[in-house]
């Protein structure tokens, strides 16, 4: 009798965890960080690891007098404004002319029943206007995306998650990917950026997953250029010796959707520079 009660209770608990609403997930997720780093205001998580490590922050702030991404950002603006061969430009594809919209992406398109990231929307805009797709992750697409992010500086991330259907399924897919251990080193995203956030891996402080999407695309010294959030996720996968997925794969789009929703309420402060 006691055993069956225990099994029923466990099944109920399991069901509650799996079927928690996105809103419940987000509250728990953000509470985890605000409890753990109780002296850090929640908006500071937008600064990633620099919210946690004062020495690193001092060095980072010193570089901001002459941001290393300045020229690449200007190029992004030029690319954004350059007309396509048909005379139209990127502004013609987006609401508000593509200005101050970063905080609304990724978005679930109900008509097409699919997730649309900002980089995917940029490429679809090109295709609609007879231009070739740009390679994802870096290069021109990251520069254009960085410029668009810069026009959203200070705007609050406002991702809407559907409560049913494929949108919710995508959200859950991203959530599961974030918490699932993978690769030869058997690490999940959460192992580093949730459970061990603030601790060291060799000489580096592990950043919090809360706030990750606010500052992408980032200009990484290691890359010598801008890279998108999905490029960084692929690097993380490679570091734990899991095979990285292709940019804009359904799984990476879902992960970006989940992560960005978890940062709802935080201000956009991208593009940013990182080591």
């Amino acid at each position: 009798m006691q055993r069956s009660i225990l099994i029923t209770a466990m099944a109920l608990l399991f069901s509650c965890i799996v079927n928690a609403t996105p809103e419940q997930d987000k509250k728990l997720f953000q509470k985890f960080y605000t409890d753990r780093f109780s002296d850090i205001p929640i908006s500071e998580f937008s600064n990633g690891v620099y919210a946690l490590d004062q020495d690193a922050r001092d060095q980072w702030e010193a570089t901001l007098d002459f941001p290393p991404y300045e020229y690449a950002l200007e190029e992004g603006e030029e690319l954004f404004d350059t007309p396509f061969r048909n005379g139209k430009n990127y502004a013609s594809c987006f609401e508000n002319g593509g200005i101050n919209i970063r905080q609304n992406y990724p978005t679930f398109n109900r008509q097409r029943n699919t997730l649309i990231t900002l980089e995917l929307a940029i490429n679809e805009c090109r295709a609609e206007n007879g231009e070739n797709f740009l390679a994802y992750g870096k290069g021109e697409i990251a520069k254009i995306s960085a410029y668009m992010a810069s026009t959203s500086e200070g705007s609050i991330i406002n991702i809407v998650t559907p409560t049913k259907g494929n949108g919710l399924a995508d959200y859950k897919k991203g959530k599961q990917y974030f918490y699932t251990k993978r690769g030869q080193l058997n690490f999940s995203c959460a192992n580093c950026h949730l459970q061990n956030a603030g601790r060291k891996v060799r000489s580096e402080t592990l950043s919090t997953a809360l706030g990750h999407p606010t500052h992408f695309p980032v200009y990484r010294m290691k890359w010598g250029g801008f890279g998108t959030l999905q490029r960084r996720i692929a690097s993380c996968d490679a570091q734990v010796r899991a095979q990285p997925l292709l940019g804009q794969s359904e799984t990476y789009k879902a992960l970006e959707y989940f992560l960005t929703y978890m940062s709802n309420g935080l201000p956009i402060n991208g593009p940013a520079s990182r080591k």
């Binding site: 728990l28 699932t180 251990k181 030869q184 999940s188 459970q195």
Partner: peptide
């Protein structure tokens, strides 16, 4: 084989990583 064991294990185990 280890990767497949991981895949099977993580079908449920990922829930243990939730905050």
């Amino acid at each position: 084989k280890q990767a497949l064991i991981q895949a099977e294990h993580e079908k449920i185990n990922w829930l243990n990583n939730l905050p």
